[in-house]
Nucleic acid binder design. Structure first.
Lengths: 244, 244
DNA sequence: CGTTCACTTGATCGGTGTCAAGCCGGGTGG
DNA sequence: CCACCCGGCTTGACACCGATCAAGTGAACG
């Protein structure tokens, strides 16, 4: 019976790349699937290591990063629920992947998944859209890394977190509304994300808190109390005589 | 006769995404194609503008960039011969595109191209590989933008230029070989590329020249006289007591 | 109740940005 | 052919942002 196949009750199926597949095709793909769990802090794969699996994230958050010989590290991507993980058509992984929280993955042998892809162009189309979207995000991030100052970077990061969580349709909202954002990252991780040090990140958080733009009710949680101000801070105008 | 269709003598056809198509399919696609020329310095499309064409670059170099309200600008990508240009499946362009040199494009109406894509999965596969490759490059670039210092960035940029030009099979070569690299970019553009100012770029060029790592025979040309040193400079070790 | 790890805050230093001259080379017109 | 001009480049002086080094604080957990 189809009702027994593992994806049947899966939440991700509503929105992940698998949503385009019929029950029949999906159960066919699922026959090679294995669920795996990883603890927070564990490394799933290391830069340059052979890439043998492709996976869909069922829960948790993964950070993708690249390191220099001396240990300097840059986070270059994130994957959380519904996102995919792993590089197709590549013998080795270009990034290291580490779990920010506990993570559950829905893993497929890479070769098998690639073969399946060849016979399912609509799935390949989904992957193309996703790759283009990730490219867009990466480029937006480059703009921040290359051009923005510390305050702007942190404000941009908070907005990015907020946009990732506040599900769509939040385009126009009450100016004084307060938004609670979950932030599973440490200051150090935010720093690696933004190309700065954890001390500078911390200072910027303090500054935002004192300016009543955000509150920090507890670690891992951030309240945005003045979204409008945050948006301005994320892209300050440095052309004319600056305001301070 | 097929011999009359415009791609017949096209050099790009050997390596561009169109190489996977048969003469027949290609001539079918080519029926909607228009060649267009752009002068150096001209803007092909502006950030947020409706994206109506998809194109293959026949000759020249294009820079893709994103700007902040106050004019700060970050180059986020490049396209030269054989690369594609334009965003598919997106109403607007996320980047601005400006010609670094004179450029010739092979343009297709975007919608038409997308439709053609649906019936040609192998072409879509080429685009997926290309998107993943661009994502990889963007992330490598993020590592440089976020973590590297001025000297490392410039060295990295020169290596990147060199790799893009020195056609493959140059893996192992004479340690004292001298490489001539064409650089169509101004100091200002290199700066926008690397997230720094043109003055700092210039200073680093001077430093490399005085260290006999490069020579600058004329504008737009760079000679790499010590590839090994350049590679070391591109990824210095800052962990232990630094060497200077 | 104590240990530990993440975070905060302070003081100092250095790398880059900024502002400001000068230089060089290519193109134009006398 | 030379003089001039202009844009891109180089070089210098200085200021400032953010990295670094160093305590100190707070909260989660055994």
């Amino acid at each position: 019976m189809l009702s027994k196949f593992p994806c049947f009750h899966c939440q991700v199926r509503k929105a992940g790349i698998c949503r385009t597949l019929s029950d029949e095709h999906l159960s066919q793909l699922a026959s090679t699937m294995v669920q795996r769990h990883f603890a927070a802090g564990s490394e799933i794969i290391h830069q340059e290591e052979a890439s043998r699996v492709f996976a869909i994230v069922l829960s948790g958050t993964i950070k993708l990063s690249r390191v220099l010989h001396d240990g300097r590290q840059q986070i270059v991507g994130m994957a959380s629920t519904q996102d995919t993980f792993g590089e197709l058509f590549s013998k080795v992984s270009h990034d290291s992947a580490e779990c920010v929280t506990d993570v559950t993955l829905c893993c497929f042998p890479r070769k098998r998944f690639e073969a399946f892809l060849n016979s399912h162009p609509e799935l390949q189309h989904q992957l193309l859209l996703r790759a283009m979207d990730e490219l867009d995000q990466a480029r937006q991030w480059m703009l921040a890394l290359g051009q923005k100052g510390a305050e702007e970077k942190v404000a941009t990061f908070l907005l990015w977190l907020w946009e990732k969580q506040s599900h769509p349709a939040k385009t126009q909202s009450d100016p004084d509304e307060i938004f609670l954002v979950e932030c599973p990252f440490t200051r150090g991780e935010i720093a690696e994300f933004l190309g700065m040090t954890l001390e500078t990140v911390s200072r910027q958080f303090s500054k935002l808190r004192m300016a009543d733009v955000i509150r920090l009710p507890r670690t891992k949680q951030i309240e945005i109390t003045d979204l409008h101000a945050l948006r301005q801070l994320a892209e300050q105008d440095r052309s004319s005589t600056s305001s301070r």
